Simulated assay, not measured.
Amino acid sequence: MAVFLLGVGAACCLGLGFVLQQRAAARAPLSDFLTFRLLLDLIHMPDWLLGLGLQVAGQVLGAVALTYGEVSLVEPLTATNLLFAMALSRWLTRQPLGWVGWTGVALLALGVTAFIVAGRPHGGGTPAGALRHWLVVGIVAGLALLVTVISRHLQPSAQAALLALAAGLLYGLQDGLTRVCGQFVRDDGVAGLLTHWQPYAIVVIGLSGILLVQSAFEMAPLRMSLPSLTAAQPLAGIACGVGFLGDQLRLSAGALAWEAAGLAAIVVGVILLGRHPAMPPGVTPERSVGATRVI
């Protein structure tokens, strides 16, 4: 129950934080796209700072949840952040959910429930060796890099979706490495943690993920970026949990079918909610490449 509450609390903070960050990033100059100048501009915007604070709080709650629960359990819970983003967006836009919105809510909730009940994620497996650990990390990070490179040649809406997808992959990887760091702290204490590479990788991944997310928020409305971000993070996190953390899922034919159906329902629900008219439209005034910041 504690892990469940921590996971839902993390989702609430993340969803609210993403909406506030996107409202601010939509006002940043396009010349800052995919550069750290973007972050320097955004820190002058109070709503972005509030959104960042909520995101950090969500990540802290998620890290605590990962200390006591498996990645394969926590990640589907944090995917419900879109429900909280939708609630805030609906309040801001006064837009009713309608059948599309309620269908998205139902699919996301039922998908998370189906995956957890059918898969019964639990630890106890043998963590992977160094080779497999590096292989999984390399594949996820490599996919994020590839998606980012491809996005540079696309239209803004597709670019935002792919940048958010890359950020989601990195955040899922970050969650997996956070779980590893928690194990190090339990075994060797905080001082022992500093002798491993994972905490330093988490810092680099976190900064890269923030830059990608804010660039995606800057380029297009939230409905173009949040679905891919929300869908990619749990998939990458589950891959890391099973790939190198020793997380185990039920593997009977019936369980696998329900797990696949649950993940599919999560993805479809995320897409339906992310593209709902209640999501903020993003850019209000037109911005040229040389535009100045609007506060």
Rank of each mutant, 00 (worst) to 15 (best):
W258F: 14
E218V: 05
P29S: 07
A114D: 03
V8W: 11
R275Q: 08
I150L: 09
I150P: 00
L135R: 02
A114G: 08
P127C: 02
R27S: 15
L251D: 05
V3Q: 08
A130F: 01
P46R: 14
A114R: 04
L135D: 00
L39Y: 13
V203K: 09
I150M: 05
V105A: 01
L173T: 08
A164L: 11
P277Y: 09
A164R: 00
T80G: 02
I210S: 09
Q233S: 10
V180A: 06
H276M: 10
T113H: 09
G172T: 09
L173N: 03
A160C: 09
R37K: 15
L40S: 14
I139C: 03
I238R: 08
G111E: 03
T230Q: 02
Y171V: 15
L194G: 10
P127N: 01
T67Y: 15
L49W: 13
L194Y: 13
L6N: 12
G125F: 01
I139H: 00
P46L: 13
A128L: 00
V190S: 10
T148F: 04
A28I: 14
M45I: 15
H276W: 03
L97H: 02
G241T: 05
V190G: 06
L146Y: 04
S31I: 13
G101L: 03
F18P: 04
S151C: 13
G119Y: 00
L165E: 05
A166D: 02
R120D: 11
F84E: 05
V283E: 11
A10I: 14
L6D: 12
I295R: 14
G104W: 00
S72G: 10
P234L: 13
S288V: 02
A11I: 14
L145R: 05
T195C: 01
R223K: 08
M279A: 08
L212H: 12
G104Y: 00
V100W: 05
R23W: 07
P221I: 02
L83C: 11
L110N: 03
N81T: 11
T126A: 06
V112W: 06
R287Y: 11
P121V: 11
A10Y: 12
E75P: 08
G123P: 04
H153M: 00
A164P: 03
D247A: 07
W48I: 03
G243I: 01
W91P: 00
L34K: 02
P280T: 06
A10N: 15
H122I: 05
F217N: 12
E218K: 13
P285R: 04
V117K: 12
C12I: 14
L272S: 08
L163W: 15
I202A: 04
L108Y: 03
S31Q: 14
I271G: 00
A166S: 15
G129R: 04
F4V: 13
G125K: 01
A261F: 09
G53C: 14
A201L: 15
T178Q: 10
L229S: 07
R293H: 13
T292K: 11
G17V: 09
L77F: 11
Q21F: 01
V283I: 13
P96I: 01
G176A: 08
T126Q: 07
A11P: 13
A232M: 14
T284F: 05
I150Y: 07
L146P: 01
S89M: 12
L40E: 14
E286H: 10
S31W: 09
P76A: 01
